[in-house]
Design a protein around this nucleic acid. Structure first.
Lengths: 232, 232
DNA sequence: CTTTTACTTTAGACACGTCTAATCCGGGGC
DNA sequence: GCCCCGGATTAGACGTGTCTAAAGTAAAAG
């Protein structure tokens, strides 16, 4: 019987592990979950006791296989819900996150099954994030690179945008940066800001943290030649 | 900011008030919510402090108007969810209760609105229970009488069956006692057991607590004359 | 009018998840 | 090789919701 809170810790640690190599530090977790470091310390002790994380004092934690499974289960719930809300309840993809963040802890396995069925077993959510499949095997995230790691001139297709802040998402949507869109990278500033040209001719600059959280797939350059974009 | 638990108490007290005149005693609540009486005492103190119930020590509690409003909000969530799960996620009406009991505390107002819209503002849930409308005015429950208060020989149409125990509901469904069905009352035993004849010719005996929780509407007797039922 | 009894409340404990304040490592700079 | 500083942990507290055991009360039975 894991509490909602424990599930949130495991999900958070999983996401942090996707972003950076384990071990994940106390303060990273505290930051991500918006609690104080002592709170994290006591929680990770508990998770360690239960065998959900491997903890080394003063170093940080790493999810065990069991911890990963729980995290994937929660993530599956979250992303299925996001997809369902978008497809069947007419939510916009920029506003589903909070609802899913709560409900993910409260739906039954039966509910999960029926939602997956109603959606015909989707593999990605509306933000482009992969939905772990029912057997909870770790999804493989190859081929997707970070927007921030490409050279100017490269043309890429957006595959995933992070689903954290509703504000940000609305902004990205307005700028037409959504999964499936093809953009050309115009400039990468020394402080990490990336400027891209969208197919409608607009340009958009994105600070490092954002550019880092957007995953893309490289596209053959001539694929967008029909929609050429001006240089400046 | 009411906790889930407080919402459960308020909903429970509301339902108990529908069944019996207030004040509602500590032990009735304890029984209904499956907690011990001291737990109830401390909780109702808190609810009293917040103005959600009127409490008289050693007597019991009664919901204030504000308490009623909260209870209706929760009940609206519950019943909309039951209806939604049945209509759009292919649940059977005998299995929706538990899912709704959890989710009712966790859906946003936005979610409520969209579900109501998807269902075209339904007025009753799959068990026949009235869904409070969005303005949370107390639903009026006239015309519905208890199955247990009718004379043998009377013909009635089932309008509501309680939604408490999945087991019971499945049993009732198998016996064809569902909202909309017309039955004739064959016998009322001195210990409260009611025997009814269903239109397919079967008969069904129901113990007092069940017969008490089933609400019915009286029907003109000749309405079922085409499907006459044997005496014994 | 007193006693009994059923129910309610008080007292005190515990698990959970959180906090602040204080202490404690451990690795980088000197 | 020592010190310092930033981050981590311990200590101790609190609010919530629950429990068991003990004490109290009200109303029915005698």
């Amino acid at each position: 019987m894991l509490s909602d809170v424990m599930e949130d810790y495991l999900k958070g640690i999983y996401i942090l592990q996707e972003r950076a190599e384990p071990p994940i530090s106390t303060s990273q977790i505290a930051d991500y979950l918006d609690v104080t470091p002592p709170t994290v310390t006591s929680m990770v002790e508990k998770l360690d006791d239960r065998g959900l994380v491997e903890r080394e004092k003063y170093k940080g934690v790493e999810l065990t296989d069991e911890g990963v499974t729980v995290a994937l289960e929660v993530l599956r719930h979250h992303r299925l819900l996001e997809a369902y809300l978008t497809e069947h309840l007419d939510y916009d993809w920029s506003e589903v996150h909070e609802e899913a963040d709560v409900l993910e802890h409260h739906i039954s396995e039966e509910f999960e099954r029926r939602v997956a069925e109603a959606l015909d077993d989707p593999t990605v959510d509306p933000h482009g994030d992969p939905i772990p499949n029912a057997d909870l095997s770790p999804p493989d995230d190859a081929e997707h690179t970070r927007l921030s790691e490409h050279e100017p001139g490269t043309t890429v297709e957006i595959s995933r945008v992070s689903d954290r802040e509703e504000e940000e998402l609305r902004y990205l949507k307005d700028a037409n940066i959504t999964p499936g869109t093809v953009v050309r990278i115009v400039d990468v500033a020394p402080f990490g800001m990336v400027t891209v040209a969208v197919s409608d001719g607009g340009r958009q600059s994105l600070p490092e943290e954002i550019a880092d959280s957007i995953r893309v797939k490289r596209v053959e350059t001539d694929a967008v030649s029909a929609e050429e974009v001006p240089e400046a």
